[in-house]
Design a binder for these strands. Structure first.
Length: 697
RNA sequence: GGUCGUGUAGCUCAGUUGGCUAGAGCGCCGCAUUCACAUUGCGGAGGCCACAGGUUCGAGUCCUGUCACGACCACCA
């Protein structure tokens, strides 16, 4: 054995050894007495986006899940960790469009089919890359069951689910105010809109009999009424009268609605149902028309001629100027308020009218809520249960259509004669369901990525090997980051219950983010990124894995610095050198244990017991520290030193303690422990560590 | 405005039904070198556990309030 552990020399070889041993696949381990196999332990990997390298956050989830999986595998449970990749609709298209822009091209230079194929090629490259990075981190997942969200049999399931929802009356196509990003050219769901605070101008405009205040004067042409609060004494006598829209002198009715806040602005609201969600609601109640003055590219329409075609920002300037000239601008104030921006590119979200496919969520979310309440889904950290429940109670109907090509095309076909829609399970229909006309055209929209990934646990198992779904569903634990709890976790519960008839997982383990050593969020713009692959190359996968679970509870954010990784590399070297010491001597024959031997074995058992208990409670950082402390302090610094003048006598005990230490540490640091095991395997109780038996407490 | 959460050594964090003489890693200081490992060993400094009240034989741990910070949500045009 070398003087220090050289990870580069072992990692690839050992990964291949594991794969060859088939340990990554769930093993049938019927006991000799013919009893049933142990209950399987199943984890569906949150599929990383197939559009980029893994980042440090991925390294943390890989470490956490792999630790759990390896632990349960060693306990002899048939263990399945099912890997996959996500096509990540909007994110991937966004990345790809940036790449096109660099070449001076845009998505509008290609037809839908060509663009789709180009993105496909791009994604396939990154998908393979990403999978190799998972291997480099030591992920012991079953590659024979690897899945991609755009696999034909997965999209088939997604189509079926949509059809089922439609047949059950849970899908409708509705004109609603949607969150539209003109730059991305697509609508977003409620969850994909970020709110940021900013200062803006607040314009007070003269509408004849009444003054209104607005931040968006360019939308006045879409006004259809003025609303005041019915209790507002200032305006009560104006209700039923009319106001005059400046610049175009259109008459607007003054109506009363309780949604108007009398404290805000002048207490009078310009009702613009075409470009504001609240106004839309008011408009519906009062049966008002809807006018759109901004189109999908963010340009003005349906306005006086001079504004048509202007971008909204420019239009605002010109309108403000015209209002001033017309003497209709009473005053301008500053206002600090919150606006919606695209979570992807931070550009302003335009609320606008659009026809989209919606899913009625109420019946689904109620069942999901009940499942959590009944404990069918348990959250390892209670505070996330609260958040999940909060979300399930506050969901709007889910807009699942996106105006992008990169995704699963919605199986909705529109009749060219009667304009009715025919929904199928993916097949092109022969004829329209309402008029039997035979010319139909498919909707060009694709599904929200979360609609397909919300079906991931049952979709992956139903399209896997025969019997997988029956054997592994519901899965044991869903481990994922808190920032996608509302996007993903609650949708999986909703759709899992609805389609597969049972919750998708029994436990939810939410992990926190990895931050830099000052506790700052990691981002490319801050320049504080920690590249997991670079760390792996420099210090070894074991060191990185240990570092990303070390020092903070799984559910909390953690700070990581290179020093932490280096420290764990030192620990890997420590166990290597312990082994070097122990394995240097020939295996002892019969030996007499003295008090030191007995004590260390007793402590080993205590440690094993504690570690096991901590693992069951997902307290991985404490388990890691327990093992670290035992191996470094108790075993190396204390016991091992005491054996130096009685090597032969203590040899058997040294080997036993080493063997059990390697087992305890293996889930955390799989490579170095297996490397040692293979070096001295004739002295240990299994030919390969990955499937050796977990120490008894 | 609402919800969730956080404030413990220089830094990053543990401290799970109240018993702590408050811990770990990193950092810092001193000493040790042909011993499995300097990717090391031994020793050490460093904390009114945010603040103020309360419950209790006993509170870092429970309750109330205050202050500070963070995340998320919301129809304030």
């Amino acid at each position: 054995m070398d003087k220090s552990y050289n990870h580069e020399q072992f990692e690839e070889k050992i990964y291949k050894l594991w794969e060859k041993s088939k340990a990554f696949m769930p093993q049938e381990r019927k006991s000799s007495s013919g009893k049933q196999e142990k209950k399987p332990f199943t984890v569906i990997m949150p599929p990383p986006n197939a559009n980029d390298d893994l980042h440090i956050g991925h390294a943390r989830f890989v470490a956490i899940e792999d630790i759990l999986v390896r632990y349960h595998r060693m306990k002899g449970e048939p263990t399945l960790w099912l890997p996959g990749a996500d096509h990540a609709g909007i994110e991937t298209q966004y990345v790809f469009e940036k790449k096109l822009a660099k070449e001076g091209k845009s998505r509008f230079d290609y037809d839908q089919d060509t663009l789709y194929k180009m993105i496909w090629a791009h994604v396939m490259k990154y998908k393979g890359n990403m999978e190799n990075q998972l291997r480099a981190l030591g992920a012991s997942c079953d590659w024979s069951r690897n899945k991609f969200t755009l696999d034909p049999n997965i999209t088939k399931i997604v189509h079926n689910t949509f059809k089922k929802l439609y047949d059950d009356g849970l899908v409708y196509r509705g004109e609603r105010i949607i969150n539209y990003c003109p730059r991305c050219g697509t609508a977003f769901s409620q969850l994909e809109v970020k709110h940021v605070e900013q200062d803006d101008e607040f314009y007070y405009l003269n509408y004849g009999s009444i003054t209104i205040a607005t931040t968006r004067p360019e939308t006045i042409f879409a006004d259809v009424a003025i609303a005041v609060n019915p209790k507002d004494t200032r305006y009560q006598k104006l209700i039923g009268k009319s106001a005059i829209l400046p610049l175009v002198n259109r008459e607007l009715p003054i109506i009363a609605d309780t949604l108007v806040d009398p404290e805000f602005g002048t207490g009078a609201l310009k009702v613009t149902p075409g470009h504001d969600a609240t106004d839309f609601e008011i408009g519906q109640k009062h049966n008002l028309p809807r006018i759109a003055v901004i189109d999908e590219s963010g340009k003005m329409i349906n306005t006086p001629k001079k504004y048509i075609g202007m971008r909204t920002k420019k239009a605002r300037e010109v309108v403000v100027n015209d209002l001033k000239e017309a003497g209709k601008m009473k005053k301008i104030e500053k206002i600090h308020h919150t606006i919606g921006v695209c979570y992807r590119d931070q550009s302003l979200i335009e609320p606008m009218l659009s026809k989209q496919w919606f899913i009625k969520v109420e019946s689904l979310s109620k069942k999901a809520f009940a499942a959590i309440k009944k404990g069918q889904v348990k959250f390892a950290a209670k505070r996330y249960e609260k958040i999940a429940k909060h979300w399930l109670k506050n969901l709007y109907d889910w807009n699942v259509s996106r105006q992008i090509v990169w995704g699963i095309r919605i199986p909705a076909y529109r009749c060219q004669k009667c304009l009715e829609w025919t929904i199928t399970d993916g097949k092109t229909p022969d004829k329209c369901i309402s008029c039997s006309h035979t010319k139909l055209i498919q909707d060009t929209d694709t599904f929200d990525t979360w609609f397909s990934s919300g079906q991931w646990p049952f979709a992956t198992l139903q399209t896997g090997k025969a019997g997988d779904f029956e054997r592994f569903y519901p899965t044991s634990v869903m481990e994922t980051a808190y920032d996608i709890l509302p996007f993903w976790v609650i949708r999986m519960i909703m759709l899992g219950i609805y389609v597969a008839g049972d919750v998708p997982f029994k436990d939810v383990l939410i992990h926190g983010l990895v931050r830099d050593k000052e506790g700052q969020k990691i981002s490319k713009s801050k320049g504080n990124v920690i590249d997991p692959i670079e760390m792996t190359k420099k210090y070894g996968a074991d060191a990185l894995r240990m570092a990303v679970v070390w020092g903070a509870l799984i559910e909390n954010d953690m700070s990581l610095s290179e020093d932490n990784v280096r420290g764990q590399r030192n620990f890997a070297n420590k166990i290597w050198n312990i082994a070097r010491f122990v394995l240097a001597n020939p295996s002892g024959k019969r030996t007499k244990r003295n008090e030191d031997d007995n004590e260390v074995i007793k402590d080993l058992r205590k440690t094993s017991k504690r570690v096991t208990r901590l693992m069951e409670k997902y307290r991985l950082s404490e388990a890691a520290e327990e093992i670290y402390d035992f191996i470094w302090k108790r075993f190396a610094n204390d016991y091992l030193e005491k054996t130096k003048n009685r090597r032969e006598e203590a040899q058997k005990t040294l080997e036993l303690v080493l063997q059990e230490s390697l087992k305890l540490l293996h889930p955390f640091m799989p490579f170095v422990t297996e490397a040692i095991w293979q070096t001295g395997k004739e002295r240990f109780d299994s030919p390969i560590l990955i499937t050796a038996s977990w120490p008894k407490g």
